[in-house]
Structures are given as C-alpha cells and as structure tokens.
C-alpha cells in the first residue's frame, strides 16, 4: 500500500492528528518531558489536574510499586489555575498538539470557577476529573453516583466554553450506567479509566506504605479491567470514548481502540520510557501498514 495511513481522529469537533494523548497526572504540563520527547508528535497533551487555587496534595510517601503497576496518592498537587494560565499554557501553545486541560475541585463551584477561567483561553478540550480516589471530598462523591455524575456534567456543560470530557472512575459497580449519566448530562465525550483504589502494607514494619493508606493503582496490571470497561462504556453511549489504563505499547493502545476507544491516553508507561508516546504513534502506524488499514476509524470498536 503506498498511501500514508490516516490517523486523524475527532473528539467533539476537535481534530487530533493521531489518537495518542498523555494521561493526566503523568506528564505535568509537558515542560519536563518536552526535553526528551517531541510533543509535536502527539495527538494531544492532557495536563495535570488544575484547581482554582494551589493544592499541596497528600503527605509522603505518595508512591508505591506493586506487581506490574504502582499506587499513587499524590493528592492532586497543582499550582492552581492562575499560574497554569500564565506559565504552563503559553508553554504548551508552542507545540503543534491539542491541549486538554484536566480540571479538579472539591465542590461543583470550584470546578465551575476553573472552567470559567479557562473559557477565554486557547484550550481545546476540558477533561473533568470526577474520579480521583485520592481526594476525600469531591473525588469519590461525584464519580460514583450516576445522578451526581449527570448533575455535575450538566452544570459544567452549561458554563464551559470548550467541549467537556468527563473522566470516569472505575471504582463503581456499573460503568455503563455512569457513562450514560455523563452523556445525559451533556458530556461531549467520556474518558476512562482513572486509577483503581488499592492499598499496600509493609509486613516488616506492619504499616501502610502510603501516608494516605490507599492510593490509585495504575500500570499494566489494570489493563484488562480498563479494556473491559472501555468496551462496556462504548456500547452504552454514542459520544466518543477515550481509553486508558496500563497502555505501554502500540498493541495495548490498539486493544482499547478495537474495544471502542476513539483515542487513548498513555500514563505510567512514560515513567519507564519517556519516549513511549511517540513510539506508540509509530507502532500504530506500522500496524496499519501491516494490515492494510487506510483509516484508523476502521479499527474503532472493530472487535468481534
């Protein structure tokens, strides 16, 4: 086949050059990794969660390794929306990649304040974090109850200027129900999964390894759960689904696409390989050439 495979995807009218994005919380606002990897190669950079004011996050230890994964209890430390707009956004604008700002808050008012502050800024999409297990209020509360999901989605959708992606928690009984609630609330897309709540105990010290006791599990260990949930969500809603959870290479990314994801996010894989994102872009292209796929959209949901 001589024609270059078409890798462009569209989320709520925003066109990404390819389906590969970064997972919020694993890439900062791009500055650190931009020294080692070319951000121009990415479909989008999804930033660390931004709150209305600076958040200090949880006490250390915040990190623990687990088999084929890791627990994090960072606690959404971030410099706040003012510094984000003044320092981090101009940096990201230098690159030819879409910008998705992840938004976090303790209350609906806090989410809305950030959405409003960003409404006049050159941001392409908002990803609303209603699913972080590490924040005592606002994380768990919003993301686990379908009615609460629908309500917060509608409130943000009304105020936000950019398209709204609701990031879903896996710590629920029925992910389809939650995805449908986000769609009913007016979400332009859903992204999943966020981390799975986990715990690690040091048997010698007989203590919790994390200061927060629990943390969010990410990495290859969660991938089968994530793929299953993306499949279920993609069959429950008509809006685009963005898939993530333990993607380390192109094959992993393609699993999510075949399950129904329009685009994917790569997170903890960056810690093992700062070049993971661009290698995954290349790997998807190689797969398309190998199997004579001319347009990535042929693969979306093509399993079974």
């Amino acid at each position: 086949m001589s024609r270059e495979p078409e890798m462009k995807v569209s989320i709520a009218g925003v066109e990404l050059k390819n389906p590969v994005m970064t997972a919020s919380g694993t890439f900062g606002s791009g500055e650190e990794y931009s020294e080692f990897t070319d951000l121009n190669r990415l479909g989008a950079v999804v930033t660390k969660g931004v709150a209305n004011v600076p958040w200090a996050g949880n006490p250390v230890p915040r990190i623990a390794e687990t088999p084929s994964g890791m627990l994090n209890a960072i606690g959404l430390q971030n410099p706040g929306v003012d510094v984000f707009i003044q320092r981090d956004l101009p940096f990201l604008k230098k690159f030819d990649t879409k910008i998705v700002v992840n938004v976090c808050g303790h209350t609906a008012e806090e989410y809305l304040e950030v959405a409003e502050r960003l409404s006049e800024e050159p941001v392409d999409l908002l990803e609303i974090n209603i699913s972080c297990p590490n924040v005592k209020e606002g994380g768990i509360g919003f993301g686990q109850d379908p009615k609460a999901v629908e309500k917060i989605t509608a409130e943000i959708r009304k105020k936000a200027k950019q398209p709204v992606i609701m990031k879903l928690s896996p710590n629920v009984t029925d992910i389809s129900e939650i995805a449908k609630a986000a769609e009913s609330g007016g979400a332009d897309a859903v992204s999943l999964i966020n981390t799975i709540t986990g715990m690690k105990i040091d048997v010698v010290k007989r203590k919790f390894v994390l200061a927060n006791k629990t943390g969010g599990l990410s990495g290859p260990a969660i991938r089968p759960v994530a793929v299953r949930m993306v499949y279920e969500a993609a069959h429950a809603v008509k809006i685009p689904v963005i898939g993530m959870g333990g993607i380390t290479n192109a094959d992993d990314a393609l699993e999510f696409i075949l399950a129904g994801a329009t685009a994917v996010c790569v997170g903890s894989a960056n810690f093992r390989n700062p070049l993971a994102t661009s290698e995954i872009v290349d790997g998807i292209r190689d797969y398309m050439l190998q199997y004579d796929i001319s347009d990535i959209r042929e693969l979306t949901g093509a399993v079974g």
Partner: peptide
C-alpha cells in the same frame, strides 16, 4: 531522598 516514580519532576511523588 524520597520514594520516586518518574525521576524527572513530573509525577510529584517525591516531594519534601
């Protein structure tokens, strides 16, 4: 020292 993940200043795991 502090428990680390990324080592490059991105994940905010190793703060003091």
């Amino acid at each position: 020292e502090e428990r680390m993940a990324c080592g490059v200043g991105v994940c905010l795991g190793c703060v003091v």
